[in-house]
Amino acid sequence: MMLIPCPFCGPRNESEFAYGGPVKPDRPDPNAVTDAQWVDYLMQVPNPLGPVHERWHHARGCGVWLTIWRDTRTHDITEAPDA
């Protein structure tokens, strides 16, 4: 069980949150990049053995979206959003 630090509600149980996926790079202008770069943007997900930057939605709480750094090996939250 993870305690996710919500900037408004403080540390809250993981079961209150909906997972929002890893943070992706900014969407490039489709006309400015090659097909390969565009597919790369659509397909590639960072899959690190270590900290991953990801989004969570406090769906059963205050409703805020937040980003954290979470270690995929231990599920320790290594970097939390500013309160």
Binding site: E14, S15, N47, R73
Partner: peptide, 13 residues
């Protein structure tokens, strides 16, 4: 589990 994970265990929830 929600989210990526390399941890081989089960979460309480």
């Amino acid at each position: 589990d929600p989210g990526q994970s390399f941890r081989r265990d089960i979460k309480q929830n």
